[in-house]
Write a protein that binds this DNA or RNA. Structure first.
Lengths: 201, 201
DNA sequence: TGGCGCGCATGACATCTGTCATGGGTTTCT
DNA sequence: AGAAACCCATGACAGATGTCATGCGCGCCA
């Protein structure tokens, strides 16, 4: 029997997935969590075989949870399911030790199969997401550029970005200018959206 | 037996919700669809009692489907479930004749209950979404302002917005300036995000 | 040890944007 | 008919932004 921890902030989805996984004879959902922190806390106590975690959750995102889990509970294999598959997340997730990565568009059969695969030590990444990730290419942004661009995402003016990043406005403009050049955008807002779409930030 | 049509682009979610609804004795999922168009076509043939539709789908969004359904199949009650509950959608949905509106954070019990409620002629709107919608207030943007602001969402420069809206750049700036004033934002990008968050665009 | 890339900053310049005043045409309501 | 709101446009001005050149210090690596 494979013991599963299920984490998703959407109660309905979580319950439904649990119902679905429970239909399989060899799978058992032993715990559920609605937030990243909750997932982590529960996992420490329950020590599940496989953790199925939603990528976007209110507090910690799925990748952070996975990161913590792989160091704290190496015996617990982590896999991530997501609605909005962005290439960058896949790379981050893999680096965090995630063993399976799926969009929620897959069928339930696939989910169950992948749970078994990662449980027995294998890995699985959704082919279309993998293809996207490859075509998206490497992140050309320097860490600082990425930081600044992320703050620019919400549409804040430069002065505010500068304050939030503890930089001088001039420096912020330089980073943004560089980022705009690298993305081929015509202003920082477009650049920020572009980078977000690629999963670079 | 209440006959249900289920539409959601995420296969996993759809299957899981179907599994969950089927656990109820008086509910039966008679059809599933992955897109808005598919949902519509299927409903015309199957004539379900209740249509449970995801708000965001690749082609037609849930509200458009609901609109079509209420005129074409008045006997079919429509309800909408959504991940990202934005107040504006709720208002639009209600105007489109939707009988139930739920975030996916609710429990499965609630879903089943609401299905029964709308089937028997009642209405149900998630209380927290309703509260949000009320606090968001009415849309103060004129239609044209909303148009322009929507084009500004992607971060395009003013000249491009002007071209896409077939307006002079000066006019675009005026609308944007007005919208920025109404939203209390400090630039159009922030204003666009704000308006989006309120469901105004 | 000498590049090289990066982080951080400043200054100058051209352009883009936001704001305001103004005006004419249309529709809607009273 | 008149007022009010909206649509569209132009012009002018200040401030924000994008771009470029330049500089210093740091850590990494051949």
């Amino acid at each position: 029997m494979i013991r599963i921890l299920l984490a998703d902030d959407e109660h309905l989805i979580r319950g439904a997935m649990a119902a679905l996984l429970s239909l399989e004879d060899d799978l058992e959902v032993v715990a559920q969590a609605a937030t990243g922190a909750e997932a982590l806390a529960t996992a420490r106590v329950i020590r599940p075989d496989v953790a199925v975690i939603d990528l976007q959750m209110p507090d910690l995102d799925g990748v952070s949870v996975a990161q913590a889990l792989t160091t704290e509970l190496p015996s617990c294999k982590t896999m991530i399911v997501t609605s909005h598959g962005r290439p960058g997340h896949l790379k981050r997730a893999l680096a965090a030790g995630v063993r399976g990565f799926l969009p929620k568009t897959v069928s339930s059969d696939v989910l169950a199969t992948v749970v078994r695969t990662v449980f027995s030590g294998g890995r699985y990444v959704d082919p279309s997401l993998a293809a996207e990730a490859i075509s998206a290419g490497d992140n050309p942004l320097t860490p600082r550029e990425a930081d600044v661009l992320e703050l620019a995402l919400e549409g804040a003016p430069i002065d505010e970005i500068a304050r939030r990043a503890s930089l001088s406005p001039g420096t912020v403009r330089n980073y943004l200018s560089s980022a705009v050049g690298k993305t081929g955008a015509s202003n920082r807002h477009e650049a920020a959206r572009f980078a977000r779409a690629r999963g670079w930030i």
